[in-house]
């Protein structure tokens, strides 16, 4: 397993750069992961990350994209409750890139 250094701490990540241990996550780690993905974190970015983390705490899995878009629509306004907006925030894809920054494991399967 590879490790990355953030704020003097060694953090284990997998081959794709996803955190191995969810507990290693902090806002600082998120910012660092976002930087490596060339994503600049705005409050709207944080809404996505926070929701992903909340959902994960409850279900141990990332939410369906449709659930995420609906939630974001509720929070940020209907015009932003769609996949297109999520791709604007996370060009690498809301499932994979946003999960990575939120410290969630990479979704697997035909996704």
């Amino acid at each position: 397993m590879a490790t990355i250094q953030i704020a003097g701490k060694n953090i284990e990540v997998d081959e794709d750069g996803y955190l191995v241990n969810l507990e290693d996550w902090s806002e600082e780690v998120a910012n660092s992961l976002a930087a490596s993905e060339q994503v600049e974190m705005s409050p709207n970015h944080w809404e996505v990350v926070n929701f992903l983390r909340e959902y994960y705490q409850e279900y141990k899995i990332a939410p369906m994209i449709r659930i995420l878009t609906k939630e974001i629509g509720k929070k940020l306004g209907k015009d932003k409750g769609n996949t297109k907006y999520l791709y604007e925030l996370y060009p690498g894809g809301p499932a994979k890139q946003a999960c990575k920054i939120a410290g969630l494991p990479k979704p697997t399967g035909c996704v």
């Binding site: 279900y59 141990k60 899995i61 939410p63 369906m64 449709r66 659930i67 609906k70 979704p107 697997t108 399967g109 035909c110 996704v111």
Partner: peptide, 23 residues
């Protein structure tokens, strides 16, 4: 994952219930 949870994504049963209710 499919051997463990029954699906490739590793969706646990409660998440599946939640997803279907949402739909």
């Amino acid at each position: 994952k499919v051997h463990d949870t029954g699906n490739n994504l590793g969706i646990p049963k409660n998440a599946l219930i939640g997803t279907l209710e949402f739909l």
